[in-house]
Structure formats: structure tokens, C-alpha cells
């Protein structure tokens, strides 16, 4: 066999391997998502049927979720609003607290800045659900039971450490000379923060904002424990209510779930590039 044909065979084999691997990956990734769509497209009576593909696919359950015409969905858009309100507030507060802290640590060079870094590291290393029990009691003491602020507080707490790390990392690429020049011109720290630091941090802000939003969109345990009234619960908690129904309205549940999944997907894909560069920059560039 000639070297050339040997190389060609190698390439063929590699391509075949990649093709196979891709097929496996696609199935692996898509099966649970397909199941969501399959259940949502079924009629209510077909939920327990033994089909693999919906026999008579219908978009009725999406319509039902959208116009809230099933009783367990009667406040679906309200819950969506709550999720959005919590998510956006978490994103905003995480960005605000994270940038202020990282700015102070790395650009104002305060003494004992390392203590803040360590505090953030400590928070980072606490498994999130482990604090659920004390958190419930503490929110009661703060007078925050059944209050979205409680959930916001929890999520901001767990999102800021990460934000601080990324901002510190990203901020290192902004030359300190810029600050010095501004100082000589008489700029105060807030002016440097708003006029120089924040604009240059834009990609990291987008990344962390998206990250915080996704974190809060995923949250169930704390939202479940800390919120109770219909007017305050988020979509995942509302979906949890379905599981205790003996009408098995699971097509509606999945339709609602898919609608709930759309905003974070849209946001992720819209900001994907910034996300990847924001989340994985820093040392990566050498």
C-alpha cells in the first residue's frame, strides 16, 4: 500500500469514527429533549400509551399553556413573570456587587483584599443545597418568608463568588496605566469605575449576567422552600404542583416546561460567543 493510499484510508477511518461518535452523541443529547416534545405533543389520553412517536400530534397543550386554560396553569404567565423578575434581579445584583468588589480588590488594591477573595472562595466551596435548612429559618427571622427577595438573596450569594473570580481575571487584562492616567486628571474612584472599568469589562458582564440568569432559572429547592403563595412562586415550583395530580396532565406540564426553557436557550445562543470568551478567557490567552 502506498503512503498516499494509506493516509487516505486513515482519513476515511477517522471520518467514519467521527461519524459514529457524532451519531451516538446526537442520540444521547436529544433523547430526553425529544421525550419532552413527544409528551407535549400528545393528547391527554395518550400519556400512558406505549408509543414511541406521538400518534396524533397536536399543539393543543401549548395553546392551553399559553392561554392558561387548564386549572393548574391558571397563573402560568404570572409565574413566568416571577421567574423573570427573580432572574433579572439576581443578574443585576450579581453584576453590581461582583464588579464593585473585584474593582476594589484588584484596582484599588485595598489592604486585606485577600480576605475578601478567601471569603468568596469559601462560599464557592459550599454545596448549595447544604444550607437549605438554616436558610429557611434565617429567612423567617429576616421576615422574608414567601418573599421573592429571599430567593434573590440566596442566588446572589451563590453567584457573586464566581462573578468576583471572573471579573478579577478579566480585569487583569485592562492596563492599570489607564487608571493612573485618569487619576492624574483628577478622576475619583466612582468615575474610574463607571467610565473606564465597566465599559472595558463589557464581555465579562454579559457572560456573568447570563450565568446568573441561568443559575436562577435552574433553581428549584430554594424557590420551593422559600416561596409559597400562588402569586410568588416561580415556574419550576408551579410545575412541581402538577406531579401531585391524579389527572396526569403531563402534556400540559411539558408544554409549559418547554415554553419555560425557551428564554434561557435564546439568551444562551444569543450570547454564546461572549459567554465562551467571557467564561474561559484570562489565563487561556497565555
Amino acid at each position: 500500500m502506498s503512503v498516499a493510499s494509506r493516509a487516505r484510508l486513515d482519513r476515511r477511518l477517522t471520518e467514519l469514527g467521527i461519524g459514529l461518535l457524532s451519531a451516538v452523541l446526537l442520540i444521547w443529547t436529544l433523547v430526553p429533549l425529544y421525550n419532552m416534545v413527544r409528551v407535549a405533543l400528545q393528547g391527554k389520553e395518550d400519556v400512558f400509551s406505549s408509543n414511541v412517536f406521538p400518534t396524533a400530534p397536536t399543539l393543543d397543550s401549548f395553546a392551553t399553556a399559553i392561554d392558561e386554560s387548564y386549572w393548574l396553569l391558571e397563573n402560568f404567565w404570572g409565574q413566568m413573570g416571577n421567574s423573570l423578575y427573580i432572574g433579572l434581579t439576581v443578574a443585576f445584583l450579581t453584576l453590581a456587587i461582583g464588579t464593585l468588589t473585584s474593582f476594589t480588590i484588584s484596582r484599588m488594591r485595598i489592604r486585606r483584599g485577600w480576605m475578601l477573595t478567601n471569603a468568596a472562595l469559601l462560599t464557592y466551596a459550599i454545596p448549595m443545597s447544604f444550607l437549605a435548612i438554616p436558610f429557611y429559618s434565617i429567612m423567617g427571622k429576616y421576615g422574608l418568608t414567601d418573599n421573592p427577595i429571599a430567593v434573590i438573596a440566596v442566588e446572589v450569594t451563590f453567584a457573586t463568588p464566581y462573578a468576583i473570580f471572573i471579573f478579577k481575571q478579566y480585569g487583569a487584562s485592562i492596563p492599570l496605566e489607564l487608571d493612573d492616567a485618569a487619576r492624574i486628571d483628577g478622576a475619583s474612584p466612582p468615575q474610574i469605575f463607571f467610565r473606564i472599568y465597566l465599559p472595558l469589562m463589557a464581555p465579562a458582564l454579559v457572560a456573568i449576567g447570563t450565568y446568573a440568569l441561568l443559575l436562577s432559572w435552574n433553581e428549584y429547592l430554594y424557590a420551593f422552600l422559600l416561596l409559597s403563595s400562588d402569586g410568588h412562586i416561580t415556574v419550576p415550583v408551579g410545575l412541581g404542583k402538577f406531579l401531585n395530580s391524579d389527572e396526569a396532565p403531563w402534556n400540559y406540564l411539558m408544554a409549559a416546561a418547554i415554553i419555560y426553557a425557551l428564554p434561557p436557550m435564546a439568551i444562551y445562543y444569543a450570547f454564546r460567543r461572549k459567554m465562551n470568551s467571557g467564561l474561559t478567557m484570562g489565563g487561556v490567552k497565555g
Binding site: 414567601d146 420551593f224 422552600l225 409559597s228 403563595s229 400562588d230 412541581g240 404542583k241 401531585n244
Partner: peptide, 12 residues
């Protein structure tokens, strides 16, 4: 009035 499902109400 807050209406909650059974197991959730007990936990809460």
C-alpha cells in the same frame, strides 16, 4: 388564602 399541594404543605 394560599392553596398548596399536600406533600409541599406538610413540609412547609
Amino acid at each position: 388564602l394560599t392553596i398548596m399541594n399536600g406533600p409541599d404543605l406538610i413540609s412547609k
